[in-house]
C-alpha cells in the first residue's frame, strides 16, 4: 500500500522572508524548495549528496539540500540562489559568472555560486587554492572549472572595492 504518512508543518526563513510548507516527514529541503515552493534555481543532480548542484545555505552554512530533511530547518534560515540576486539586481558573483562565461549548461551554477558565496562571506580575499577547496563538493561536467575559479577571483576583487553586496 502507498503509505499515507502524517504531514508536518515546517516554518522557516527563506531568502529573508517567512515561509511554511506542509510536507511528509522525510521530504528533503531540496524537494520542498523545488516542488512545494517552486524555487527552481536549486537543482537536483544526483539526490545522494554527490554532485553539489543542490547546495544552499542553512543558517549561513553550506548544506546539500538533497540530504537535509526539511523538518530539520524548522525555525531556521535558508538562502538559495534566488535570495542573493536576480535579473536587474545581480550579486557581484552572478555578474562575474556572467562576465567570465562561467556557466556553460548552467546546471551546476546555482551550487557553485552558493559555495562561492559561503567562501567569500568568510574569506573576502581567498587564494586560488582556497577557492578550489571551497568548490571541492561541486561538480561541473562541462568541465568549465577555470572560468568558474576566475569568476570567483574577480567577484572577490569587485566586492572588496565596495561594490554593493
Amino acid at each position: 500500500m502507498a503509505t499515507q504518512l502524517a504531514t508536518h508543518i515546517v516554518t522557516f526563513q527563506l531568502n529573508g522572508r517567512p515561509h511554511a510548507v506542509t510536507v511528509a516527514p522525510l521530504t528533503t529541503l531540496r524537494t520542498a524548495l523545488r516542488e512545494d515552493l517552486h524555487l527552481h534555481a536549486t537543482k537536483a543532480g544526483c539526490g545522494q549528496g554527490g554532485c553539489g548542484s543542490c547546495t544552499v545555505l542553512l543558517d549561513n552554512e553550506l548544506v546539500l539540500s538533497c540530504l537535509v530533511p526539511v523538518t530539520l530547518v524548522d525555525g531556521r534560515s535558508v538562502t538559495t540562489l534566488e535570495g542573493i540576486g536576480g535579473p536587474g539586481r545581480l550579486h557581484p558573483l552572478q555578474e562575474a559568472f556572467h562576465d567570465h562565461f562561467a556557466a556553460q549548461c548552467g546546471y551546476c551554477t546555482a551550487g557553485m555560486i552558493m559555495a562561492a558565496k559561503w567562501l567569500l562571506d568568510r574569506n573576502p580575499n581567498p587564494t586560488r587554492a582556497e577557492i578550489q577547496m571551497a568548490l571541492a563538493g561541486n561538480l561541473c561536467r562541462c568541465t568549465g572549472y577555470v572560468p568558474i575559479i576566475e569568476a570567483i577571483e574577480d567577484a572577490a576583487r569587485r566586492m572588496s572595492k565596495g561594490v554593493k553586496r
Partner: peptide
C-alpha cells in the same frame, strides 16, 4: 559576446525540463 542565456543561468531563472510542473 555575452551568452543570451547567461543571466538566466547565473540567477537560476533558466527553465530546464525538470523545472516544468
Amino acid at each position: 559576446v555575452k551568452r543570451s542565456d547567461g543571466i538566466g543561468h547565473v540567477t537560476g531563472q533558466t527553465e530546464y525540463v525538470d523545472d516544468v510542473f
